[in-house]
Design a protein around this nucleic acid. Sequence first.
DNA 1: GTGGTCTAGACCACG
DNA 2: GTGGTCTAGACCACC
Lengths: 135, 135, 135, 135
Amino acid sequence: MPLRIVVATGSSVPIYRQVVEQVRLAAATGRAKAGDALPSVRTLAEELVVNPNTIAKAYGELVREGIAEAQPGRGVFIAAKRSVYSRAERARRVEGALEEFIHEAVCLGMPEEEIRALFEKRLSRADFKQGEDKP
Amino acid sequence: MPLRIVVATGSSVPIYRQVVEQVRLAAATGRAKAGDALPSVRTLAEELVVNPNTIAKAYGELVREGIAEAQPGRGVFIAAKRSVYSRAERARRVEGALEEFIHEAVCLGMPEEEIRALFEKRLSRADFKQGEDKP
Amino acid sequence: MPLRIVVATGSSVPIYRQVVEQVRLAAATGRAKAGDALPSVRTLAEELVVNPNTIAKAYGELVREGIAEAQPGRGVFIAAKRSVYSRAERARRVEGALEEFIHEAVCLGMPEEEIRALFEKRLSRADFKQGEDKP
Amino acid sequence: MPLRIVVATGSSVPIYRQVVEQVRLAAATGRAKAGDALPSVRTLAEELVVNPNTIAKAYGELVREGIAEAQPGRGVFIAAKRSVYSRAERARRVEGALEEFIHEAVCLGMPEEEIRALFEKRLSRADFKQGEDKP
DNA sequence: GTGGTCTAGACCACG
DNA sequence: GTGGTCTAGACCACC
């Protein structure tokens, strides 16, 4: 089973980003293992009824990030785990989302304990091994 | 004093959103009270050296959110407090941002404790009384 | 002077890569400073007589790498230096080129001392502060 | 024994290039001598489980480089040693790869000593007698 | 005006 | 068949 990818075409988050994040997640949680093949650009494009370029853009990003490797003429594969990201690099990348969350909450007048409670509740639901797909 | 608004043109967050959030925050924290006047679109546009359309768009959003009320020919005013937000209403509104943050972090392979540390660090910097605007 | 970019359309290295590397280099050597504006996508596309998408692709990569920041409606700017890359990340990224060089040299029967001499000669010509453009 | 050739289908370097480089190396190091036969296109293709076109392309390149000679109807053979390469000729051939490596490193902000350390580490792993093929 | 996303379709290298 | 690059042109959000 070559990794199932689904997208919500109605969403405001770009299709190519949805693809990138699903693969990134699958690789991070171990659902996709090093060497696993991704669906071919054209195949996935047909399946999702989007333009092949959109998929190519997503795969290109995964390759540049080192999460996948492209073997021209053969396909795209999950790369050997390369110690993932450094702590600082990870922090930098989620910084924006954290900022947005705290800012929103404070703007709405949410008290500190309520923010923390919400955060802990969600964190406890997070799956660090297998899933994390929004149900 | 008709509510001081500042924007960072260097920031990557859209100017109109900066304006919206500052007013929203001021209303949420009590810095701006019901009935207080917002600066006129043209005045504020000149002061911030931005396009009047940008301010108009921000004010429009505030009106749609029920935070401000436009009184044609007179100006825009902070709306009567809609009983603030209920706990559930607040939770609903920040849910998306929380989701995004946790999702991003997990995708990048960040372990639970690291996510919590980042969150607490940022939370400790938050100002629950007066500011929260990115300096 | 908003950073001069030139490309060799005849080269086998993709145009968008040429653009990425020139900007990356300029940022690394200090020739382009944080906050400096890049030429607009459309402007540069006209100047280089290439499709705007090609430039957009290059800029997008720079943004994802954290070298530049896009401010929709305003333009693309060199980002504040974010501690650049970690040592390990840098090593990972040049690994391929190093491998290629050593492999080529060994294949051609070049003795160790000759490889080292060639390397040191080229390294001594490298400019770590201002230039590095292939003359 | 007609020269053993192995390829790593998992590698990101094209198969035909792996073949070219192995033969080139074998010729450079003396492992393959002038007049030695290369495996036939079809034999090798079957052995490596790759498309015959791929092997034909590799052999074609070797012939163009003067490393091998095709004798129609008989097969492909290692060419008479063209007095190996002169020092200058060797230098010219690896120049591009060296340039690429140094350029990349400098672009990424890698300091001189770090570049040298990386280079020396890799050089110490190089095998100047028999292998150099990526295992 | 700016950048961001997507579609459609082309050509090339690789297998 | 595979992915990689480029062109052309569209629509959107933002200023």
